[in-house]
Nucleic acid binder design. Sequence first.
RNA 1: GCUCCCUUCGUCUAGCGGUCAGGACGUGGCCCUCUCAAGGCUAAAACACGAGUUCGAUUCUCGUAGGGAGCGCCA
Length: 466
Amino acid sequence: MTVRTRFAPSPTGYLHVGGARTALFCYLEARRHGGQFILRVEDTDRERSTDAAVQAILDGMAWLGLSHDEGPFFQTQRFDRYRQVAEEMVAAGLAYRCYCSKEELEAMRSDQEARGLKPRYNGYWRDRKDAPPPGVKSVIRFKNPAHGEVVVDDRVRGRVIFDNAELDDLVIWRSDDSPTYNFGVVVDDADMRISDVIRGDDHLNNTPRQINIYRALGHTPPRFAHLPMILGPDGAKLSKRHGAVSVLAYRDEGFLPHALLNYLVRLGWSHGDQEIFSMAEMTALFSTDDVNQSASRFDVEKLRWLNQHYLKTLDPATIASEFTWHLQQQGIDPSQGPASEDVIVALRERVHTLKEMAERARVWFEPLTHYDAAAVAKHLTAAAAAPLAAAKAALDAAPWTVAGIHAALESAAATLGIGLGKVAQPLRVAMTGTQVSPSIDHTVYLAGKREALTRIDAALDRIGGS
RNA sequence: GCUCCCUUCGUCUAGCGGUCAGGACGUGGCCCUCUCAAGGCUAAAACACGAGUUCGAUUCUCGUAGGGAGCGCCA
């Protein structure tokens, strides 16, 4: 049987990291087995679904590179199909019309809760042959089996058994003429021949109801795998309160899509002690058998470490375009300064995100106007004049490469009989106005020869003028 | 309240009856060093609790406690 998985978000908000991990696992499972990954938008709730959210989800998936083989399908475009199935079920006696008002259901619930029972529909219209009350719009309810149990052989939870007595007759068709979630998924998963349903474990309790519907419809249920939740750093449900939850927010914060993917794949899944996975490794190694059962917390620090790992190890050319995007986000014109690849090489061991990198890169793309007072006080002193002058002379004659600059500065220091640090620190302040920057050779190199010499003169002027 | 799920260092996890309970992030220390980093070495740090099964439980079973999910004409 070919493996077919689907990611089925409801477009009521952005693609968040929990959804992204579910999508990733579905994607990997399909790829691993040479099957298909299907994207389906569950927008039956017209009140809360928005086009903007649909677009945000599509954008998020695209940014992550989780490409689907079929879809996106939209449930709102399949209403005729759901209606047809629902009507057939009524005709076949598998479902029935219920005329209870919301007030009646409300009363039923509060009464049951008062008696310490689980609130459930009591089946009032299940076998009633009365004429329906006039003027009341009906819903259609599924005739859930009253007895017996439903066994879910979940691929990550193991065998979970539910008693049918705990389940009630759920609504499958609303009075406003639209299908409900638990009905739509079953019809779709059956029609789309989904072999493996991989989703968050908040759906585990829905599974027995869905299995009963599959059976009623004469279908064999798919295999299920319920993933543990991803919680916030404090162990509470992940929400905006925890900072970024939207996948695109991570892009804006300067994370590489693969770093996020690598981070997410290790939340709930592992392959021995391995932490770093290429997409090829993920697809080759992923298995629901290795998914664990306990919820995990989202730890940005580890994500940052992974992001830096990829910044350091990827070919600079492959991240150059994302980097220049971040420069532009910060109002920096990438065309006016050093080559992006050179900047990346100089900064990638010093930052964790592309956003930080862009912030730190500004000094080489714009004129130097601000000098940190403490840096000036400490390093642009009379004692720095000679080293700076020597550096200037040496640089003027040096081939403009990182190695050439390095050699020139070393010999300038040697000639003066001082350590490189005595030259580098004043020079660093001259180049950047601060005491912190990449190694001095890179720092000078990125400024460009003309600008580097100009900045030395400016520093010399400051020393002379003070 | 009822049903279901979960429980190894602060965090992510390995473990699938006998291990000095391993790795990673983070944290501390040392080394390296032109600043900051990166890197190397190193340290501290965990089996929620109680019964049972067993020669032997982190591992299997059952309780307890704690956490989570569901109980909608939301998905």
